[in-house]
Structure formats: structure tokens, C-alpha cells
Write a protein that binds this DNA or RNA. Structure first.
Lengths: 351, 351
DNA sequence: ATGAAAGCGCTAACAC
DNA sequence: GTGTTAGCGCTTTCAT
């Protein structure tokens, strides 16, 4: 009854839409057969070939909106990170994007600006325009996350909640390696600069710090440092008052802030103070001296999460019996650069 | 003839979809009236109120796919940046996202990994799932961009092409300020670390460097430095061979690399070598010493571009006569921190 | 200012 | 394995 705008500009510049019916006519089959051929339904391989050929000849592109209207799916995936400006999360994004790009699935990325109020709304909004969500280091509590996961396919990064698939790095192990490294260098008193108290990552790393007691390293905790460069600048002075000869920071950003502050105060790293970060962001290689840090394959965190989500979606479509939620733990490894050295006391002993 | 999955989980946990017809019934009007009320059509303010009320009561959310099917619009916007890991672009993203968030429009973000081959494909893919695109520092040549812009509403960031709306920062002016600052400090020979030769940003900044000739500053160009930290590390040694007493880098990342390398080689910044970056990324404040740099309101670049794009879309819908493409130029300002000081020669003169 | 009706492009139940 | 058919939820023309 009325003219609809027909989109899709061809190379010749004229504007035509080729629909599933055009392909059907060209291939001499019905529209449903075309649909089946395109979406992997039961078609004889001969007709499938004919159809694919016709589609290619006509330059057919399925209309996402139309498909979405019938299937209820959007074809898009969503990813939520605390802060786009944090290079750690940027790498996670790249990992997820790498996986979705190969399937030509649109990826919606949002950040919450580290604000948990925003997190709720953003998730709801993302949910409505995607088929599944990857939540990176979410702030919400377990109950809220369970609720969110009930709303649709969900994969967690750096967070573990019963019943929800997740990918995490082995932070506890990473921190333990850091502690052992320091212990081997003769340090007996190290300050730990804690991250956000409510974060799962903080709890995991904190757990690793517990190793100190059993290997003769006294750990002094400095609570609730903002996981930023400025947080580190602030924390450096506090750490200095503890009598520690080494510092383990919640993340690299904090460590870099510490390094900057110590340098400004004329305290030599690593001669007078050793320093270890966490995450191995690119910047960690750029500092002077290069930062010793717990390295995590951040990109892989992203690709793995995307993989898990895709698997979830496939299982969903096949109405497969719900298997237990996959829980992948990626290894951590301490990368020793130049901010760690023998403890000053040990050095005396050495000379 | 068959059961469709009805989505939308309510607070009670049961799964119901409320459609425009439900609202129509509740409000005692026809579906078309509801549609008009929701989309700003001609409705009496009384019925509009009734409809909005009914919609709110029922918790009605328009189905994006259905709307898209009839209108040909997706409601989403796209943004393409060269590299998600570059903090400069991260801020641009935040700017765009801030604007789209208020309208609850999904934002699709992709990066090209600084690869111009990927750029073409990614743009095509983004185009199909969005109503309009913001292209940040695109690598494609003018003709290709004109072609892309013909494919749908497009706004450029840090690039100017005839007929396409754009937002840029005044890089030429920024670089001129840098040069004047150096001149005032007595520098007479400065090395300029060029960015990618084919980039618009490089041409703009290069233009600013031309000022040197007229204010008695000799400029030595070092061509085609990768716009990364490592690029800077590499360039530092080259710059040292030129006899320059100051360096202006294409961007902060390069400058930070230079700073790192100079520090490693035991060359004091700024005593022996002054250094200026460009962009004023957050990291520039974190270096030691703090980096003197050309500051650009990166977030505003993003919000302005989003604003322009939204305006374009609105005009499109209203079939408004095409006005000339808007070209917004945001100011630049030199931020003097601690990497610039009197030229060594001038210092001698001073003592 | 409002309602009726058609149809956007696609998929899925059903019959053969 | 394939065609027929109905309908997903919405917007818009047309008539009133």
C-alpha cells in the first residue's frame, strides 16, 4: 500500500535491494529453501550450491532486521568493560572483537566509567540489542549477576559466580610468584597496595598474598587504593612509612604511579625499593626502569570469553541440555624486568 | 501458524512481550495512533498523554528489529578508530558514547589495527548495521572517503574532505605554539618527528612546522616515525644526530618513547634536550618529568562528531535541503610541563 | 486527528 | 528435501 525505502547502493550507484525472493526466483526454488540454504537447514547439497551461487551472483545480503524480527535474535554481541581508557580493558576488547569479526557479528562495546549505578542500566540496554553479553570485571554482586545471567547468555571475565561461564586469569598464582621472587631476593617485608575492596580481582590477589606467612615474608596491606596512576602516586608515600623493602601493587597503573612518585622523591627503584605490578599492560614495558609484573594474556581472556559465549548461543539454539557452566582459568606468569632487585639488607650481606 | 519466541522477561520472571497493540488496547486507540504518539507524529496532546501513560504502565519497549524492518533504520551508530589501545582514541570513543548514551542509541565501535585494508571491510560491515558513521583519523584517500560518505551519513574526525562534515583540532596552530615556545626559550634548531606520511594529521602538523622559517628556528624533519612508543625510542637516537636542542614529536606516544630512550642514554630532559608532544593524553601527565604537549579536547572531538552525525540524521529524515557540510575546528593549546626549558646555549648566555 | 490495512524481509510449522 | 503459508511488530498511506 505504500512505497518503502529500498536501501543498499550497488557499485553502479543505483539503489536496489535484493531479497530472498529474488534469489529464490534466480535459483528456481522457493524462498524457504533459500532461507534454509543460508542458515544451514536441511537442503540437498545440489540445491544449496545452486542457491549460494544465485545469491552470490545477485549480491544478496540477508536483512538483519527482518531476520531478527522472526528469530528474536539480533546477531550482535555485547561487551561491557569498566573503563575504555584503561589499556588492560582495551586489550580485552581487541580479543573479543577478533573473534566476533571473523563471524561478521556486530559488537557493542560500552563502559561504565567505573560506576556501578551505570552498570545496571548499561547492561539492560545492551541486553536488548544483543544476543549475548560478555561482562568484564563487573562490580555488581553475585545475586545481581545471577539475575543478569538469567536475562540471557552471559560470560564473565575476571569474576567467578556459580552457574555462570567465566574466564579468569590465575591471579592468586601470579601474586604468589611475585612473592616468591621477592623472597628469593631477600625481601622479608613487603607492602601490598590493595585494589577496590569489593572486587573479585582484589580478593583473588589478596589470597595469593597470604602465601607470605608461610615463606617468611611479612605482608603489610595498604587498603583500597584507586586502581589508577594517581592512586599509585598517593600510595607510594604510604608504602614508604611501612618499612617495607618491596611493593606489590594491585595493578600496573598503580605501580607506575608509585614508580613516578618514588623517582620524584629521589628514591631509587630497584636499589632502595623493589616494585611489582600486575597485568603487564604495554605501558609496563615503557617505564624506566621497565616494570616487573604479573603477566596475563589479556587478549586471550577476550577471545576465550567470546568463544564461550558463541558456544552458549549455539547450545541455546540447539536446545541442548544445559551442561555445567564452563570455567576457564588462564595461567599467569611473573615477568621480571628491572624494578626488582636484591633487598637492601641482603645487598649489605652480599658485599 | 507457529509459535514465536516472545522475549522480554518481566520483574516477576515470567516472559511476556508487550507490543504496540497491547498499548493500543490499554489506551483505547488504534495501533497507528500509538505509533504516531511514540515517534512524534501528529497526535492530539490529550491522546499522546493517554498513550504514553498506557505504555509506561505496561512497560512497553518498541521492538528495534520491527521498527528497523519498516523504516530501514537500525537506530545504531558506528564509530571506527585506528586503534582501541591508543588512549587518544579511547577518549574519542568516550566522547561519542557519552552523546549516544543519552539517546539510548547503541554504538558499534571497531578498530582497524592501523590497517587500511581492514578499514574498507570494517566500514562496509559497520555501514550495514548502523544509521550513520563517525570515522576517526581514517587512512583512506579522499576519493574513497567521498565514496564512503555517499553510502550514508558520515562524519569525519581529524580529517577534512570536501562535502563531508568533520571535526578537527587546530593542529597547525598547536604546533605553531610549540615552535614559538621553543623559540622563546632560545632554541634555534629543532627536530620534528613526523607521523605517518599519508595522514591528514601529519600534513596539518607539518604545516605548522613551516612557521619555523619565519621566526628563526631551523626545523630538521625526521620522516615517517611510527606513532607509537617504540617509534619514539627509535627516533630518539636519530634526533640526537641532528644537533637539535629540542624535539617536537608527532604525538605523545612518540614523545614518551623519546623520553624513555634519552633517559636510558643518560641525556637529561629538559637540561640537554627539550621535548614536546601532541594530544595531551593522560599518560603525558604521568611521565617523569611531565611532558610539555599540545592539548586537544579529545572527548569534545567525540561529542561534537556525534552531535554533527545526529544532526545529519535528523536532516535526512526531514528531507531537509542539503546545507553545506559543517566543519568544526576545535582549538589547541600548548600545555607547558617540565620537558621544555631554556636551550643549552641560551643557558650559557644567561649565566 | 484517527483508524484500517498493507507490507517491510525473513523464518519456521506443516504438509507433501 | 521442498513448497506453502502465516506471521514476527512496526510504520505509513489512504480514507475518514
Amino acid at each position: 500500500v505504500f512505497r518503502y525505502r529500498r536501501a543498499e547502493t550497488t557499485d553502479e550507484g543505483d539503489t536496489v535491494t535484493v531479497t530472498i525472493h529474488d534469489v529464490a526466483r534466480e535459483a528456481g526454488v522457493s524462498a524457504s529453501t533459500v532461507s534454509r540454504a543460508m542458515t544451514g537447514g536441511t537442503v540437498s547439497s545440489a540445491t544449496r550450491a545452486t542457491v549460494m551461487d544465485a545469491a552470490a551472483r545477485l549480491g544478496y545480503r540477508p536483512n538483519r532486521a527482518a531476520r531478527g524480527l522472526t528469530t528474536g535474535r539480533t546477531g550482535a554481541l555485547g561487551l561491557l568493560v569498566p573503563d575504555l581508557g584503561n589499556p588492560y580493558f582495551a586489550e580485552v576488547i581487541k580479543g573479543v572483537a577478533a573473534r566476533t569479526r571473523t563471524r561478521d557479528q556486530p559488537l557493542l562495546v560500552s563502559d561504565t566509567d567505573e560506576d556501578s549505578g551505570l552498570e545496571r542500566d548499561t547492561i539492560a540496554s545492551l541486553r536488548r540489542s544483543t544476543d549475548g553479553l560478555v561482562l568484564c570485571s563487573p562490580r555488581a554482586d553475585d545475586a545481581a549477576l545471577a539475575e543478569i545471567a538469567r536475562g540471557g547468555p552471559t560470560v564473565l571475565i575476571n569474576r567467578r559466580v556459580d552457574g555462570i561461564p567465566s574466564v579468569t586469569s590465575n591471579m592468586t598464582d601470579g601474586v604468589e610468584q611475585a612473592l616468591r621472587h621477592l623472597s628469593a631476593l631477600g625481601h622479608t617485608r613487603v607492602a601490598y597496595l590493595c585494589g577496590p575492596a569489593d572486587s573479585w580481582a582484589e580478593r583473588s590477589r589478596s589470597e595469593g598474598m597470604a602465601l607470605g606467612a608461610s615463606i617468611g615474608v611479612e605482608v603489610v596491606r595498604i587498603p583500597a587504593i584507586a586502581p589508577t596512576f594517581d592512586g599509585g602516586v598517593y600510595a607510594a608515600d604510604l608504602a614508604l612509612t611501612t618499612g617495607a623493602t618491596a611493593i606489590i601493587a594491585f595493578n600496573d597503573l598503580i605501580a607506575l604511579g608509585v614508580l613516578n612518585r618514588l623517582t620524584s622523591r629521589g628514591i631509587s627503584v630497584p636499589a632502595e625499593m623493589s616494585l611489582i605490578g600486575h597485568d603487564d599492560i604495554e605501558m609496563a614495558t615503557m617505564s624506566h626502569p621497565g616494570l616487573t609484573t604479573v603477566s596475563v594474556s589479556t587478549v586471550k581472556l577476550g577471545t576465550t570469553a567470546a568463544e564461550l559465549l558463541l558456544r552458549l548461543l549455539a547450545a541455546d539454539r540447539a536446545d541442548a541440555g544445559h551442561e555445567p557452566a564452563a570455567t576457564v582459568v588462564l595461567p599467569s606468569a611473573l615477568v621480571v624486568r628491572r624494578t626488582t632487585d636484591l633487598a637492601p639488607t641482603a645487598q649489605h650481606g652480599r658485599s
